[in-house]
Write a protein that binds this DNA or RNA. Structure first.
Length: 426
DNA sequence: TCTGGGGTCCTAGGACCC
DNA sequence: TCTGGGGTCCTAGGACCC
């Protein structure tokens, strides 16, 4: 039986989330900005038509935005994450095998289902009805082809495209009209190298000699070529495994020069990462800390050090992890630089159940730590993130990022719901 | 003046071992 | 002066994704 993989992708996800709660934004050009209102991370259809690209720096677009009356909102990840969960729960009803690939898309194994096109229409309708977010569905025999089918679906009013229902020459005709850079796994670098070889369309890549691709580009692109030919090389990953690394990094609202401010930031990021670590019931063996100056500030002196440290024993205790990241920070910090960003990475991640035991384990201290951490997590979940935190995180956080125009957390914060109702409907 | 954040996979090269 | 071959493990860096 032919394998059938569906890729369901939300349309302009962050913009659609905002429109759900501010219907007045419907039909207007809207962009959502990254942290610090730095660049564009989601665009409405009207904005895409103006030629504004993904990740374009906002400050360069302000004049164009004024001319066209573009509405810019700061990103509100709490809201987007909550709506994403709802979309994914609805889609899970359509297949027992679901891979949540990103905040706004998932793969579903729909092998063996009859009338796939009608089935895909049912997905769209149910998500629209239950959550209010518009989605498009692409179906094909491999994940890479399903991504391309979705690309085609986005341009159709039906919002659905099923490659499995097409004859070979019909499919090839569609692929011949898609630029090779649109193929999943072909980034900027590979795109220009392929073009230099005369491979400019998805069809040309599908027909490229596998061995030459393998030799010149490596195994990853060779798999992509096989997938374009309908041979599934990538399986659905149902995320039962632990994350291999947990990253927390942010740019500052203003350049930071003092060690004390960097210390506050690093403690705060380590605390967020430690929460994630405990949420997946795991411990880390290594921490990495990195800071950097602004690489776009070409004239300023540049410095971007990083340091990885092994912990004496695996830990999920915020205090132990902060102790390590702070010690790393103090080793790499130098005066005389204007730092723009700091980040930490937890790695060497193992499940708590697999923690190695040693003769010298202090069981009592370990239990105390576990109790303290789970109490901390419980309070922060109930009372709001950051209710209890280490004092070293700082109170004022002068370095914290700026978000000029953020919407209320309509679905997750009681006080914001009240605010939403009190606000006059302009 | 102002350019995000969080992740994965692959590869090359060094250290080390027998 | 001459200085093997093969294996493993780790890390850094590159490329990609959304």
């Amino acid at each position: 039986m032919q394998r059938a993989i569906a890729l369901v992708d939300c349309n302009n996800f962050y913009v659609s989330c905002e429109r759900l709660f501010q219907p007045a934004l419907e039909g207007k050009p809207v962009v959502i900005l990254s942290n610090n209102d730095g660049c564009v991370v989601s665009r409405s259809q009207e904005v895409k038509k103006l030629g504004i690209t993904m990740a374009a720096p906002w400050f360069k677009l302000k004049e164009l935005a004024r001319q066209h009356g573009i509405i810019a909102l700061s990103s509100n990840y709490t809201l987007y994450a909550d709506l994403s969960n709802r979309v994914m729960r609805v889609l899970a009803q359509f297949s027992p095998e679901q891979e949540i690939y990103s905040i706004d898309e998932c793969f579903l194994d729909v092998t063996g289902i009859n009338e796939l096109t009608r089935y895909a229409q049912a997905m769209r309708q149910r998500v629209k009805q239950h959550v209010g977010i518009p989605v498009c569905v692409g179906i094909a025999s491999s994940k890479t082809l399903a991504k391309l089918a979705n690309h085609v679906a986005k341009k159709r009013s039906s919002g659905v495209c099923n490659f499995n229902a097409l004859a070979e020459d019909e499919l090839n005709h569609l692929l011949s009209r898609i630029e090779v850079g649109e193929v999943w796994g072909v980034g900027r670098r590979t795109h220009s190298r392929l073009q230099a070889m005369g491979i400019t369309t998805a069809l040309a890549l599908k027909c490229a000699p596998g061995e030459r691709i393998r030799a010149e580009f490596g195994i990853t692109l060779a798999r992509t070529v096989a997938e374009l030919g309908g041979t599934a090389c990538l399986s659905l990953d149902e995320h039962t495994t632990l994350r291999a690394q947990i990253i927390c990094s942010r740019s500052f609202a203003i350049p930071v020069t003092q060690l004390a401010d960097l210390e506050e930031a690093v403690i705060s990021y380590t605390s967020r990462a430690a929460e994630k670590l405990r949420r997946q019931q795991s411990m880390a063996c290594c921490v990495q800390v990195a800071i950097r100056t602004n690489p776009n500030q070409l004239k300023a002196p540049q410095y971007q050090p990083g340091l990885t440290l092994a912990l004496a024993e695996p830990s999920d205790d915020t205090r132990a992890l902060c102790h390590a990241t702070l010690s790393g920070l103090r080793q790499i910090y130098r005066t005389g630089y204007a730092y723009q960003k700091a980040g930490i990475i937890l790695s060497g991640i193992i499940a708590c159940d697999n923690r190695p035991h040693s003769l010298f384990d202090d069981t009592e201290a370990q239990q105390k730590s576990a109790t303290l951490m789970s109490t901390l997590d419980l309070i922060n979940r109930r009372m709001g993130s950051g209710t209890i935190h280490l004092l070293g995180e700082g109170i004022t956080k002068s370095w914290a990022m700026k978000r000029g125009n953020v919407s209320p957390r309509y679905t997750t914060e009681l006080s914001d719901i009240a605010l939403a109702h009190a606000a006059p409907n302009k």
